[in-house]
Design a protein around this nucleic acid. Structure first.
Length: 565
RNA sequence: GUUCCCGUAGCGAAAUCGGAUAUCGCAAUCGCCUCCUAAGCGAUAGGCUGUGGGUUCAAUUCCCGCCGGGAACGCCA
């Protein structure tokens, strides 16, 4: 893509630095104002002229060339018109040259990013509250990979805690291996809930649970075996969900993995004089930084969440030597992350600045917060199944002869679910509603997939057309619909960079929606297949470029694009 | 109580480092398939961008106050 802002800036004679001038140049709000604009208001003081006069003078002095064909002053704005056909050609050839990887880059070459996301809790059901971290983390994984980074996806398993003692007691009293194998996590959860119901009237259960937990920690074979059984049952189930969502991990080191790795870090913090005793607990005082103290060791001597996270961060830095480590975790834990990042900073780890909490909003139900213990949850697999069923019904109604019907339904349904977690800024809270997830009209992933299929349909119909970098009759592309579409496609690579820099996959979602919308308007306004070969060739190139960018963009979000639907 | 986040049309959102007439979708009403997939496209309607100040040539955007909603705030994760 031609750097128009730089070209414009180089040609203007104004008393500000090149860099600042470039940053002052904006894209126009409307194509009729041209393509780029320089608001001249800020120049008024230093140039001692009115903005209107400045714009007029600059316009009069401006030397056009093959890239910038016109400069026009309008009410204090200096508007520039680029050579639109040249730009169109540039964008299309960039897309073709990338061979399906438009937007990829090598800016991350030699760098490593760790992404901690999804983090399954053993023995707990995987519900829609886990969708955001999974979808956002997975999308960031794919985005950073596309930018050349080595990415390490980490599933920080919730596989440690006293609740597993309770699980063993419950399982030994009321459980059955065959049933657990068959029913999976639902059965484990049922036992867990039963334990909590019985516990108040049977205090001995609490004591037994404590003993069993101690036995897990000591490596008692029976306890260990049962715990591994629970872990396997949970992971087998969640693995089928990950497979359907196209989510992958490189590490499954969770809480239990770090259980014997906390003493070193704790000793280091003590040696640095950071740890103080407070009400029987060991803490790092952070009052100087306007934060409550960070608790690291309980009064009974056991460790805490922050202790484990500190140990994990140190271990990851050693193991992966990351340039950045992202934690895709809900904003409820804002303080926790600020605290333990600060502790690592105080401990003198200069890489503490590379730890990033990628916070996202809460998911709640229409009738309030979800609660695993109350059984008030919507299981993710149910949502996926419903979405896939719905997609199947629509195919049945609209395109009954479609080959690979089931596969396409899966791609569309899963896409709709993933997209629901990726369409808005991640910080926004979400009130889950089946109506919204199962709506396949408008700004949704099925709409993107449909548009992609539409593109393919044209390309297929064009038959002997072969993509090539030979320009067609580009005059056929000189219209507002095509211009809009081309500009959006041209902005894709920068948007991928922005999405990575801001940890915000929704930037890509939003652009894809705009591209699909622009394409559909183009599609209605301009017939592609025609008797005019040169015109057809030019338009087919636009179609092919659109298809390529939609497919690539969806892939970065973890969503597949069926050729037909 | 303290700190942080969010308030844009009935609902869900967008708006680049502050820029031109605040965009898009859902829902509603009305149109468009002898024509490349109607999961589409068009049109109508829907707004004092929570509120009051301030800064600026220019504020949805930055600053302060207030109102409303959410979250966190020591032995859970």
């Amino acid at each position: 893509m031609i750097d128009y802002k730089k070209i414009i800036a180089d040609k203007l004679d104004v008393p500000v630095s090149r860099e600042e001038l470039t940053s002052m140049i904006t894209e126009t709000a409307d194509d009729t104002f041209g393509d780029f604009a320089l608001p001249c208001f800020r120049l008024a003081r230093s140039m001692r002229m009115s903005p209107v006069a400045i714009a007029e003078k600059l316009a009069a002095d401006f030397e056009t060339d093959e890239h910038i064909v016109k400069a026009e002053a309008v009410n204090g704005y200096l508007n520039f018109f680029v050579n639109r056909l040249e730009m169109t050609w540039e964008v299309i050839s960039d897309v073709f040259a990338a061979r399906g990887h438009y937007g990829d880059s090598d800016i991350g070459a030699g760098k490593t990013v760790c992404i901690d996301y999804s983090s399954v809790n053993i023995c707990k059901s995987f519900h829609i509250g886990h969708l955001s971290t999974t979808a956002i983390g997975s999308a960031l994984y794919k985005i950073y990979s596309a930018l050349g980074y080595r990415v390490v996806g980490i599933n920080h398993l919730g596989d440690y805690g006293t609740q597993f003692g309770k699980m063993i007691v419950a399982f030994k009293l009321w459980g059955d291996r065959t049933i657990a194998e068959k029913e999976g996590v639902a059965e484990l959860q049922r036992l867990y809930v039963k334990f909590h119901r019985e516990e108040p009237s049977h205090p001995e259960l609490t004591e037994q649970a404590r003993e069993w937990f101690a036995r897990i920690e000591k490596g008692d074979p029976e306890a260990q075996e049962l715990f591994e059984f629970f872990k396997r049952v949970t992971l087998e189930e969640v693995m089928t969900i990950y497979d359907r969502l196209n989510v992958r991990f490189d590490s499954w080191n969770g809480e239990s993995f770090f259980n014997d790795k906390m003493e070193g870090p704790l000793q280091l913090l003590r040696d640095k004089g950071l740890i103080t005793e407070s009400q029987g607990a060991q803490v790092v005082d952070l009052s100087e930084y306007d934060m409550p103290p960070c608790l690291l060791v309980k009064s009974d001597g056991s460790s805490l969440y922050a202790t484990r996270d500190i140990a994990a961060a140190i271990w990851r830095k050693k193991e992966y030597d990351f340039d950045k480590c992202l934690y895709v975790v809900a904003y409820q834990q804002n303080l926790h992350f600020k605290q333990f990042f600060k502790v690592l900073d105080l401990a003198g780890f200069e890489w503490a600045k590379d730890l990033v909490h990628v916070a996202f909003g809460m998911v709640s139900l229409e009738d309030g917060a979800m609660s695993t213990r109350k059984g008030n949850v919507v299981l993710l697999k149910d949502v996926i199944n419903k979405a896939v069923d719905k997609a199947g019904e629509i195919i049945e109604a609209k395109n009954p002869g479609l080959p690979n019907r089931d596969k396409v339904a899966e791609q569309v349904g899963v896409g709709a679910v993933l997209f629901s977690a990726l369409e808005n800024s991640r910080i926004k809270d979400i009130v889950f509603s089946y109506d919204r997830v199962l709506n396949f009209d408008g700004e949704t992933s099925p709409y993107l997939q449909y548009t992609y299929a539409r593109c393919n349909s044209i390309l297929e119909k064009a038959g002997d057309y072969k993509s090539s970098c030979v320009p067609g009759d580009y005059r056929a592309l000189d219209n507002p619909e095509t211009l809009r579409l081309i500009k959006l496609i041209g902005s894709f690579p920068q948007t991928v960079l922005d999405a990575a820099a801001k940890y915000e996959p929704s930037l890509i979602s939003a652009l894809l929606i705009d591209i699909a919308q622009a394409f559909n308007r183009f599609y209605i306004a301009h017939r592609v297949i025609s008797d005019n070969a040169a015109e057809q060739n030019a338009r087919l190139q636009v179609v092919e470029a659109t298809a390529a960018v939609l497919k690539r963009g969806l892939a970065l979000l973890g969503i597949e694009a069926p050729d037909k639907m």
